[in-house]
Design a protein around this nucleic acid. Structure first.
Lengths: 234, 234
DNA sequence: CCTTGTTTTTTGCCATACAAAAATACAATG
DNA sequence: CATTGTATTTTTGTATGGCAAAAAACAAGG
């Protein structure tokens, strides 16, 4: 039925899906936590947050559930929420999982990604190199975020993507420090270039190995910042 | 300092942490969904659920957030919650992730598990074989659950454990059917025995491969039950 | 039958209330 | 003074009712 030519022409004029208050609250809190505005272990009093953000307890609490599911905050029954502390145990666990899931994404990308996506990925890496070189306005993190989005999109595994996004934010508390060491960033880019090469060659085994190494290195760099028993502020 | 012998003796006499209403609601709903009491795609009206379960909308909505984070239900803004439908796309994604995370657990178990845990794991497999043989009261699923718990405990990666538990419940909609085919169960046990062997030999590479195969087989069996385009009831 | 208007549901958010648990401050007692 | 006990205040967990706005269901009118 080619009759509806004028209508089915996919003219995308979506009005913009309004954020929804609860989501905004969740996002704000997420940010507040990852940038360290709330310290790990700090207790979060509902009433205070409500006043602070100008929303009702109902909405706030629902937002808190989301963060709880993300593992960003921890609930002790009848004691309330507190910002989760990242023990080095947990940090290690996170990086172990990241290895597997990013490795998977790499494999899948090598298998399934379109030429477009390949090019987009390569482009984002070069963009990343630029950002590093001339200290552009955009932060390293932002551009790296784009790189990730392309990778995950091309991998075509939403489940893995969700999980990675979660542990990503969760590990942000560490990475803020970890990526700022410029030598590591330099090396990181070399690794990513090699990674792209492997992907373009559709060599999934190599991509897998490179990915594991990359995450391994990132982990070493990050864990250096919390070397010993103490998690990160008591 | 061996002075505190009477106190530091880890005598576990926790009083019992009472369930908490919201958690009960969440758990009930989870079950209701996995056993199919609510069909995939079915819309969940808050008021109805409230009456049904005898709780306030406040508590109910918070519970729904949890299920949402688990991916069990889906929220369409201003349209409400509905039971998530498992497209074969998503199912495939889930099994891909399962492969990686269980594989990781296998590796870690091989590296870190104590002799105790090895024995416990082996025991649970034999128990599983028994349950299969004489159709004991305990369901296959329950015992396999114990197997999993031991494996994950021994692996010592809480992050991976959490994620696995989530996708486990999420995939239950399929597995209810998949594991009931008795030939598959038979074979599944053979695989698990070999898996145990590898773990006891601390051969992590072999364990990894066996684990991947095992999940792969499970996936094939499960996906056979939803062969084509139609997800599972519209 | 398709379009348009009207009513009913249902969601999203808020304010308030209140019992019970926890934290805190304070008193008393050894 | 340290410990134990008690009273006061916070804070959580849950419930109720309310209301605007989106969606769904329904009713006319072309």
């Amino acid at each position: 039925m080619p009759a509806d030519s004028t209508k089915s022409q996919d003219m995308n004029l979506r009005v913009e899906t309004l954020p929804g208050l609860r989501e905004q609250v969740a996002e704000r809190l997420r940010m507040a936590i990852v940038v360290g505005h709330f310290k790990p272990g700090e207790r979060l009093i509902e009433r205070e947050l409500c006043d602070m953000m100008g929303v009702s307890r109902t909405s706030l609490r629902e937002a808190l559930r989301e963060l709880q599911a993300d593992g960003l905050i921890t609930l002790k029954p009848n004691k309330g929420m507190s910002v989760s502390v990242l023990t080095q145990e947990t940090a290690r666990s996170i990086y172990e999982v990241r290895q597997m899931l990013e490795g998977l994404a790499a494999r899948l990308f090598a298998q399934r990604a379109s030429g477009e996506e390949m090019k987009a990925l390569r482009a984002s890496v070069e963009e990343l190199a630029l950002v590093y070189q001339d200290f552009s306005a955009e932060t390293f993190i932002d551009v790296k975020g784009r790189f990730y989005d392309i990778l995950l999109k091309g991998a075509g595994n939403e489940v893995a993507a969700d999980m990675l996004r979660r542990i990503h934010t969760r590990a942000s508390q560490l990475r803020v420090v970890s990526l700022s060491s410029s030598e590591r960033a330099q090396e990181s880019i070399r690794e990513l270039r090699a990674f792209c090469d492997a992907l373009e060659a559709r060599d999934e085994d190599l991509a897998w190995r490179l990915c594991l190494d990359h995450v391994q290195n990132a982990a070493k760099a990050a864990l250096k910042s919390i070397p010993e028993g103490a998690p990160h502020e008591a």
